[in-house]
């Protein structure tokens, strides 16, 4: 399923809403999650999962082609942990 299919399904279920509003709603939800993580916040959606930011420490990496050492700066990466209910549903419990 891709974004446009998700929007279509929500639109089909909500005939009283304009398609462009449904688009805006779906986009707002995903944008809000990105904005939260960009500010270092977590987004916890019980039953679905939680989005958080993990810190990766600075390290000395290596260019795999040349074998040369390069310093890799500390960075922050997005992380998703599946919620218990969804994990259970994936394994039909």
């Amino acid at each position: 399923m891709i974004r446009s299919e998700l929007i279509q399904r929500i639109a089909d279920e909500n005939p009283h809403l304009y398609q462009r509003d449904v688009e805006k709603i779906v986009n707002t939800i995903f944008d809000e999650v990105i904005e939260a993580m960009a500010s270092g916040d977590r987004v916890e959606l019980r039953g679905f999962g939680a989005f958080s930011v993990k810190k990766r420490d600075a390290r000395v990496g290596r260019n795999p082609r040349t074998g040369e050492s390069v310093s890799v700066k500390e960075k922050h990466v997005p992380f998703f942990k599946t919620g218990k209910l969804l994990r259970d549903r994936l394994n039909d419990n």
Partner: peptide
């Protein structure tokens, strides 16, 4: 950096503010 946790309620609030539902 003050770490907050957002929930469904915050996402709903954003939809409310953005779309006016």
């Amino acid at each position: 950096m003050v770490d907050k946790t957002l929930t469904r309620m915050d996402l709903a609030e954003a939809v409310h503010a953005e779309v006016g539902l």
